[in-house]
Write a protein that binds this DNA or RNA. Structure first.
Length: 382
DNA sequence: ATGTAC
């Protein structure tokens, strides 16, 4: 075992240094999840925190069964990084912020052709949630313009087609109401018992799951395209990685299923580990490892529960204090609850989470990106 | 997390 790989039980490991704060409740959930039938191994990431019954920031490996509830409602949620054609040096923040007045409504008619074409190309037939396509949603979802602030591996940066002078766009969103509807219907039918791998019910779930993953990818693409258009910019996709999904994966020459809930794949090339708005994002080169179930943290990880944050912060920080950050970036968030719940103070430092994984030999840092403008929502009190 | 619940 390398450093920063803690053994909780025979089945359960945790990627974190001894000094990284992990809530006890999250470890309890991790151990509880390991007791599910068919569970082989569970790995917690350094951003592990409690969820509703199951923890967030973890990978779960099963044989013979899959557990849709472990993936959760936001099937296909992930991170998409685009490079814009805008020069960082040309950005006037006060002016720039005003460009994003119309990025929350359903996509208008001017998008219908590209939506139709891309849905076809991605074999997405469901129409029930078309109105949500191209919208960010709530919670920890965002669209954030960033500047490459430190380069540690210039070769890798170049291989990705990234230019330090260009403004980048990071999109965090998922399958909106579609994934939710799939999970709700599944739980109504099967509760939390999971599905026998290969069964008809399992195949049916996987078919819906896979479509929701493709829908979430298209959603991020459309969000990026509409933000780039609003910024009067061109752009190209650099990477897109899902952190909520279940996929077939062979381990020890035996087939099985790798569930990821807030866990970024480390076996698919470069990924980003985002800090909460007001903190740095890290572009990293993963080193695939079975020790972490081929996964990495999907972010900095919550330190404080949603709902607790306003009480903990409002004595010290008013609304106006939270829309400008210590790194000089701006935040558009007209929803007061979200403004507090997603404040950088509510999260761990991304640097420490990344360092835990680097020290465990799970990644090498390519570059550090600093936030420029984080868009959450115009909300109800902007 | 959620075209946000009783």
């Amino acid at each position: 075992m390398g450093t920063n790989v803690q053994t909780i039980t025979e089945q359960v490991s945790l990627i974190a240094s001894e000094t990284t704060w992990i809530e006890g409740a999250a470890i309890q959930q991790l151990k509880k999840t390991a007791e599910l039938s068919g569970m082989v191994r569970v790995a917690g990431m350094p951003d592990l925190h409690p969820g509703r019954g199951y923890p967030i920031g973890a990978a779960f490996y099963t044989r013979n069964k899959i557990y849709p509830a472990l993936v959760g409602n936001d099937i296909g949620c992930g991170m998409s990084l685009w490079q814009s054609s805008l020069k960082v040096s040309k950005i006037n923040l006060d002016k720039f912020m005003k460009k994003f007045d119309r990025v929350e409504a359903p996509l208008d008619e001017s998008w219908s052709e590209v939506v139709k074409r891309r849905k076809g190309e991605k074999d997405i037939t469901t129409q029930a949630f078309d109105l949500s396509l191209g919208t960010i949603g709530g919670g920890n979802h965002f669209a954030e313009f960033q500047a490459i602030d430190q380069v540690y591996d210039a070769k890798a940066l170049k291989a990705l087609g990234l230019d330090k002078k260009q403004l980048q766009l990071l999109v965090h969103s998922g399958s909106r109401g579609l994934g939710q509807s799939i999970l709700v219907e599944h739980i109504r039918q099967f509760n939390h018992h999971g599905l026998i791998a290969g069964s008809e019910d399992c195949q049916h779930y996987m078919q819906q799951h896979d479509e929701a993953v493709r829908w979430a990818e298209l959603n991020r693409e459309l969000i990026a395209r509409r933000f780039l258009e609003a910024a009067r910019s061109e752009g190209h996709l650099v990477l897109d990685v899902n952190h909520n999904l279940v996929t077939a994966k062979a381990l020890d020459n035996q087939s099985g299923y790798l569930h990821r809930k807030g866990a970024t794949p480390s076996d698919l090339g470069y990924v980003v580990i985002p800090g909460s708005r007001g903190d740095y994002t890290y572009l990293v080169k993963p080193q695939p490892s079975e020790q972490s179930l081929y996964s990495l943290a999907h972010g900095a990880g919550r330190k404080w529960k949603r709902g607790d944050c306003q009480g903990r912060l409002s004595h010290k920080y008013k609304k106006d204090d939270l829309v400008k950050t210590a790194l000089g970036s701006r935040v558009i968030c007209g929803n007061k609850e979200l403004l507090y719940d997603e404040a950088p103070q509510a999260y761990k430092k991304c640097e420490s989470v990344v360092a835990d994984m680097a020290d465990a030999g799970l990644l090498e840092v390519v570059a550090r990106l600093r936030p420029v403008l984080t868009f959450k929502t115009h909300g109800d009190c902007s």
